[in-house]
Design a protein around this nucleic acid. Structure first.
Lengths: 113, 113
DNA sequence: TCAACATATGTTTATTTGTTCATATTATAA
DNA sequence: TTATAATATGAACAAATAAACATATGTTGA
């Protein structure tokens, strides 16, 4: 009856709230995925999937402007998705973390279905 | 020497290009991640992590407007991340795919470090 | 120190996108 | 069939953001 349904519903709502991660965690999670949510950045990340590359190489390979690549790399670095090291005039970028590869692969799997 | 380095470099570039997925696949991948790249949508998805919910419940639990939730659910449904079934006046939404849970979990793991 | 090369960064602009408000659609019960 | 509840949708607006352009910074070799 009505009363029982109400209680069950409230319990459901309560359990959802209990399981729901803190807003801050979810905000950070969204920020993380946002990094992968742009074609240019995805291309850059994939190009570095198993090798480090310098800015000019990335721009050349992907037919992007140096400025655009540099801007995006900065964003990716701020988000700790890539790291860099300087060698002479060049700066070599690479994926910062095995998780980045995992997330990329997992997403690609889903898309390829 | 210069020549050898050049060849190695060119080979590297070539191998990167060989491994790089098609632009269309990368575009689709970016579109997928874009869905997870918004706080509101992430909250909605997480709320449905292990239960179906109707629009009003989601709006109530997450303190969002009915309109906003409905708009976002439509976007999520178009992207095949959620599915829905109607029961009387209510429409129940749930995650469409085990991959969605996996991607959420993988991302959360990375964030929680 | 100066020229060149590689990268970084500031600014502007155009586009995308999430929210709100108003209204339409759909379904149920009286 | 009419009132009400639940959801969907269209339009306007504001905020976020990616790209382009110009310029600055840093590095090396002559």
């Amino acid at each position: 009856m009505e009363k029982e349904y109400q209680e069950t519903r409230e319990e459901l709502i309560k359990s959802v709230l209990d399981r729901q991660p803190a807003d801050e965690a979810l905000y950070n999670l969204a920020e993380l995925f946002k990094m992968f949510g742009d074609s240019t950045r995805i291309k850059i990340l994939y190009a570095m999937f198993d090798t480090e590359l310098c800015v000019n190489d990335i721009a050349g390979v992907l037919h992007l402007s140096q400025s655009s690549v540099s801007h995006q790399l900065r964003i990716l670095k701020t988000s700790k998705l890539v790291k860099s090291r300087r060698e002479g005039k060049s700066v070599y970028y690479s994926l910062d973390d095995e998780h980045v590869r995992l997330i990329l692969s997992m997403g690609m799997e889903h898309v390829e279905e």
